[in-house]
Design a protein around this nucleic acid. Structure first.
Lengths: 215, 215
DNA sequence: CCAAGAATCAAATGACTGTTCGATTATAGG
DNA sequence: CCTATAATCGAACAGTCATTTGATTCTTGG
């Protein structure tokens, strides 16, 4: 094959993380291809060798972030534990993810609207690009619903098993995810609490909210 | 004075609400002055008669939204009630605000970064514009901290009075506000629950999270 | 009815951005 | 040592957008 210089070996992954960081700082629309390129010492033109265009780049960042989070949650979900234990582990996993990679966590929250606003009905030259983009975008949103469902199902299961009190599982789940997502907005590395400590507070908070009685 | 046509009497306020709506749909960067103008049947140029520029327009939207919310919270805070009752009323007020005017609620959450990213150090022509903008922006952020403090203080007071269990008030407050803010993202008028119903679930959730024992 | 200023618009400007293209450089396999 | 091709860049393009300017239309106080 070809080129992979010793000093500036930049691959897809590097660009993805760099993009997440810049996205976190500026937001999708305010982020230029030049900004992202600069973060990895490239020019804007070079990015098009790795990604079809700006929209696909954003989509990739979100896909990777979501996949990483879902993987961990599925492992917990598949384990043989009580609902209380599962939910605790899931909350901890989610919050630690967000605090560990604020860039991706925040992108997951803030850039979804940008994804929706991509001008799909416009005068785009390449028709197949549009088609593929829409398909992958829809799949992303479906996967995001699945992600939320993982939490909601545990809440529901816990209610049925009597481990949790009776609540509106859908709303409480959304409240929970809102609280977690918001962590990506205010959390700063090196602050009063570590990511794990914040996660512990969240676990404690939500178990209490769900009226768990064995903690 | 002058002009205020019968058919299209558009004033500052109208533009403000229109801007909030478009902002909610598209986000600050993706929103053009033309978009906002169209919402009130004006041209982009006309907006400059009412607002200095796009940045100030955004700032105005956020200021108005925050002021409205804070007003209600302060009235509750000043009342002579228990911490449980105060917090309940505050949560309900906040959530109903968000569901009642999703546009402003969402702007408060999503456009704050845009506010930070305004190119203040750039080659702006008018130096005094920049100075005023920075001053008002700082004041906005201070006011936003004050808003959060209103909730946090009640949580702390409730802990001291024994109405709430001992929690990390700062983190729990942020979790609470995160959950409320997130409502602006998913709430749709005409869905399964009304804004008031969602607010009730939130009150119930947070009182439980705080281990309140008189509900 | 008049004059002053408020409200609006059309058109032009200047800057910035995503994207393309052609050329160049470096690498790995033969 | 070649050569195909991966990776990169400089320059140019077409489009969009915030903002300015100068003129125009309306409304109201006198």
């Amino acid at each position: 094959m070809a080129r992979k210089p010793a000093d500036q070996s930049v691959d897809r992954e590097d660009i993805l993380w760099a993009a997440a960081e810049v996205l976190h700082r500026n937001g999708y629309e305010a982020t230029t291809m030049k900004d992202i390129a600069a973060q990895v010492n490239l020019t804007a033109a070079s990015l098009y060798h790795h990604f079809k265009n700006k929209d696909f780049l954003l989509l990739n960042v979100l896909e990777v972030g979501l996949d990483l989070t879902i993987d961990k949650l599925e492992r917990i979900d598949a384990s043989d534990r009580s609902c209380v234990e599962k939910l605790s582990a899931m909350i901890r996993s989610h919050v630690v993810s967000v605090t560990g990679n604020v860039a991706v966590g925040a992108a997951m929250v803030f850039e979804i609207r940008a994804l929706l606003n991509v001008s799909v009905g416009a005068k785009n030259s390449d028709e197949s690009f549009t088609r593929e983009f829409v398909a992958r975008r829809n799949q992303f949103f479906a996967r995001r619903d699945y992600f939320e469902g993982l939490f909601r199902n545990i809440v529901r299961a816990g209610i049925e098993s009597g481990e949790f009190r009776e609540v509106d599982a859908a709303i409480v789940t959304k409240a929970m995810l809102g609280a977690h997502n918001w962590v990506g907005v205010w959390f700063k590395e090196g602050g009063r609490l570590s990511g794990e400590a914040v996660a512990d507070v969240m676990v404690d908070t939500w178990l209490a909210a769900l009226g768990e009685r064995n903690g």
